[in-house]
């Protein structure tokens, strides 16, 4: 793709904003269509952003920020919130384990696969969670050399 300048997208995700879950992911996917022609790549990235967005909407006390940085052939996503934090990260990464409220599950969210899904499809994954907040950083690369095991 040559020299693509760095672009940034920034969104605020409100707490319990179930109605809008996925709307940022859709915008990101649409925006990136101009950068990346691979539908497979866009889908993979879209799923990761959707899950990060859903986590902010479902699990935070005051919502959070979603930052998307596009550079070269890669996209970095930073999802940051101000709490309440993930009490047990290992458990949160177990498929099927969910602490999502019933309300969220009634709307079709909170299947307990979100973080796992990001971990599976992202090329780098970093998660730090304290009571005062959680920071999730991941990158999805469009490099030809990357092999995905799915």
């Amino acid at each position: 793709m040559g020299n693509v300048s760095v672009s940034e997208l920034r969104y605020i995700v409100g707490p319990s904003s179930y109605d809008s879950v996925g709307s940022k992911a859709m915008k990101v996917k649409k925006f990136l269509q101009d950068y990346f022609p691979s539908q497979d790549y866009l889908r993979r990235l879209g799923v990761c952003v959707f899950e990060a967005e859903a986590n902010l909407a479902i699990h935070t006390t005051s919502g959070g920020d979603l930052l998307i940085v596009i550079y070269n052939n890669r996209v970095k996503v930073v999802a940051q919130d101000t709490g309440p934090g993930i009490p047990d990260i290992d458990k949160a990464l177990t498929p099927g384990f969910t602490t999502a409220p019933e309300m969220a599950r009634q709307l079709g969210f909170g299947g307990g696969v979100g973080l796992n899904n990001i971990k599976r499809f992202a090329d780098s994954f970093w998660l730090e969670s304290l009571k005062r907040g959680t920071t999730l950083v991941f990158e999805v690369w469009n490099d030809d050399s990357t092999q995905f095991d799915y």
Partner: peptide
């Protein structure tokens, strides 16, 4: 599911 998330999911996944 009939809410907007179903359309958004479909859109993300083509």
């Amino acid at each position: 599911v009939t809410n907007l998330s179903v359309v958004r999911t479909a859109s993300i996944l083509d």
